[in-house]
Every structure is written in C-alpha cells, then in structure tokens.
Design a protein around this nucleic acid. Structure first.
Lengths: 229, 229
DNA sequence: CGACGATGATTGTCAGACAATCTGACAACG
DNA sequence: CGTTGTCAGATTGTCTGACAATCATCGTCG
C-alpha cells in the first residue's frame, strides 16, 4: 500500500510508518471482518484475541473501541463486543445516508474543484479496467465503492468524505456477510459510465435520479439476500 | 468506591446510570470542553487527569480515544492528546457539511414523518420560549443547535443525525473558544421562525436558500472572531 | 418438571511497571 | 558563535497481573 520508494530526491522515501500497535490491531480486525473471516455476530473475546494477536488486553480493548465507534462492531454492557449484525433497517439507513451524501456531491459537480472531478473519472476508469481484466469480485467491490466515495468527494468536504467512508465500511461488512453477491459487473460499469456522462453533459437532475435508482436497487438486493441468509 | 450514590429519596434517581466509567469520564471531559474550562490546545496529560478524575490511566485513555474520534481532541504520536484547535479551514468544512445535512433534511420535509416535523416545531418553540425568558446564552446556544439537529432529523436517518451531532459538537467547541459570541438572539429566532413558515407553506427552495445564508453568515462570524482571537 | 443456587467464564476496572520517545538544557567541538 | 552530542526529566505506549461485578451454564432440589 506504500510503494513510495521511487523518489529521486535525497529523503524521498521517508514513509515513517509510525502506526501504533492499536492502529495495526484495528486494521487487522477490519480486514478480517471485510474478508468475511469473522461472521457477523461472533463475539470478540478479549483474552483470546489479545493472545492470538500478540498484544495485551488493554491495547486490544482500545482497538475494539475503535471498531465499535465505526459501527463495525457492537458492545453490550458486560457482554463484550461482537461483530455487528447488519439488519434490514440499518441497511436501509445506510442506503439513505449514502444517497444524501452522494447526491450532495453530484449536485456540486459544476462548482467542484477540477481535482475532485478528475478523481471521479479516475475511479470509474480504474473500475472499468478492473472489470475488463476480470479482477476478483472483492477487488471489483472495492473499486466500485471508491467510485461512490469519489462522488462524495465532489463536495470538497473532508468531513463528509470521512463520514461516507464510515458508512461504506458498514456496507462492506454487510456485503462480506453475503459474500455470494456477485452482481453483474458489466451492468454496473455501464450504469456508472452513464452517470458520469450525464454529469459531464451538465444534466445533473438526470444523474441524481439515476443514482437514486442505482442505490435503491442495491439496497433491495442486499436486504433480500440478508433476509434469506 | 462511588460515594456519588447518595440518593435521598427511595427511588428518586431512577436514572439507570448504566454508563460505564469510560462514558462518564468522556462526558465530563466534553462538558469541560464545551464550558470553555479547557482552552483549545491545552494538552490533556494522562496521569494528572486520571488522578484528578479518580480513575485509572487505561480508563482515561479510552475516554480520550473517544474524544479524539469525535474530533474534539487531537492526538499526536508520542505527544499525547490535546484539546482540538479549531482553525478557519475546519470551521468552513464543518459549515459545508452542516449545510449538506440540513438541506437534505429540509428537502425531505414533505415526505418526512409527522414526528420529525413535530420535533422541528417543538425545538423552535423551546428556543423562542428560552429567548423570551432571557435564558443564559449557553442555553440559547444549546437550544439553537437542537433546532438545526431537528432539521437533519427530517431525513429520518439515525446515522445522518449522529453525524450531525458529531459536527455540532465541533461547532460547540469552536463557540466555547470564542465565548463572547453573543449574537442577537431575537434576530435568530425571527429568522428560524421564517424558515419554518416557508417549510410549512411548501416553499422549500426558499427555505433552503435562507438556510444557506444563515449558515454562511454564522460561518463568517465564527471565523472572523477566531482570527482575531 | 420447573425454580433455584453454585460454579466458571468474561468483562470492567485498577495498580504498577517498563522501554521508547520527546523536551529542554547544558557541555563539547569546530 | 553556531552546531553537535549528550544527558536528565517528563510523558506516552504498552505490558503484566490482579480483583470485583456480572453473566451463562448446569446440576440439584423441591
């Protein structure tokens, strides 16, 4: 993730990856959740996890607190924390929140910075390239979500983007639980490309409408799979 | 160990204060920050604070992590946690994020639940009543922010509301640092009442426009005071 | 057959300790 | 005189170990 080695100047490659132990533990837990290694609802026992990760219990507890704050896990008093269990209601909520944030970004398309617009184009390009190369559906999922994040980036607000990231994380959790959701990637690529075309053409209302349909469809698909899980 | 349980009446304090120690510590810290007791930038030394609050260091650390996650404090590696220092850029960002969330709520006015609409009316009523009674400007601030939160509530999305709460918290921090910002309360009451009237009349575009102006004005006022602070 | 109490497991919290790092100052050196 | 090296104090990051409170389980007893 940090290939920043190709710098020519004297001190170019000073990445100084000073991530604290807590951060590393939290990263590892997120990865495990997204990868589906931890089923939703499984309790995260502190002693066992701490031992397994080679850290002390207080350190692990701080990492767990982070996960809880992000909505990836839930804590019940005196019963510890366990991997969040996405229910239809929360999926619906995530979807409406997503819609609000991404719509706001799209409506700001004309006034957005050129960099933000370029980020959208790039995200879409990366996605289409991945589709063409038949990448793993995990990578496709990832790149697909990056597109949507870039839409929020059109607002130019770091805080809104970080909120969107948190929401997308919850979505990733839900997707990981379903795992077999392998929707038609080509279809998605076409729909997203159409979205960008509408934006570039200045027909924002149409783009917003299409986004709404897209998100609503995704919401229904997830909930459906969730119910029969 | 907890002598604060001196309830006199039989079951008078049914507060079900099931908040963990960490939560209580975090609450106390937030209060201190909002009250302006802790100037922005002051380092929160762990041992001293833990001793002063009568809790252990790990417990305090968890509370500090919460504050940092909420944006009320910042952590620099190996240098500890200190009260966040709101700079113009972040105030601007908070303001645009606020605008997005509240605008989304207002646009949803016609489709919002009756309860959500009623919450807006109630928040405004409480505010006007407080103004009429000449309440402390802290209470006015508080009630004023509740109005804006209720606007976000029109989206019907708990996640968006909790995001707005986090953002409002940052705003409260900035306000606490300025402290002398005592803008004309009556003027605000009038402007907000006008907003609600527009919504009830169905003229949402006008309401959104007015909100935009209102928030932009607030943003400028805060930044100006911040600069000369 | 169901209510009840003992037992073990797990969390919430604490105390104490250690190495790593930062800060600041002071001495050594060119 | 400015730069560099070194050191003591302070503070954080992390660990170990421990304890009480609470929860879950299950066998026992009425």
């Amino acid at each position: 993730m940090d290939p920043a080695v190709s710098s020519t100047d004297a001190f170019g490659s000073l990445s100084l990856e000073h991530s604290s132990t807590v951060d590393r533990v939290a990263d590892e837990l997120r990865r495990a959740v997204f990868e589906g290694e931890l089923e939703s609802g499984t309790p995260l026992r502190e002693v066992a996890l701490a031992e397994s990760l080679g850290v002390s219990r207080p350190t692990l507890r701080e990492a767990l607190a982070l996960l809880v704050a992000e909505g990836l896990a839930t804590r019940e008093p005196n019963r510890g924390v366990s991997v969040a269990r996405p229910d239809p209601e929360s999926v619906r909520d995530v979807s409406t929140a997503r819609t609000v944030l991404e719509t706001a970004g799209m409506r700001n398309w004309p006034h957005a910075s050129e960099g933000a617009r370029e980020a959208v184009r790039r995200a879409l390009g990366d996605y289409e390239r991945a589709v063409a190369q038949g990448a793993s559906y995990q990578e496709l999922n990832q790149r697909h979500l990056v597109i949507h994040l870039s839409l929020v980036g059109l607002t130019g607000s770091p805080r809104l983007v970080s909120m969107a990231e948190s929401i997308v994380a919850e979505l990733r959790l839900a997707l990981a639980q379903i795992d077999r959701v392998r929707r038609n990637a080509r279809d998605q690529a076409g729909s997203h490309h159409h979205l960008l075309d509408l934006l570039e053409a200045g027909d924002i209302d149409a783009a917003v409408a299409e986004l709404g349909e897209h998100l609503h469809g995704a919401e229904d698909a997830i909930i459906e799979r969730l119910d029969l899980g």
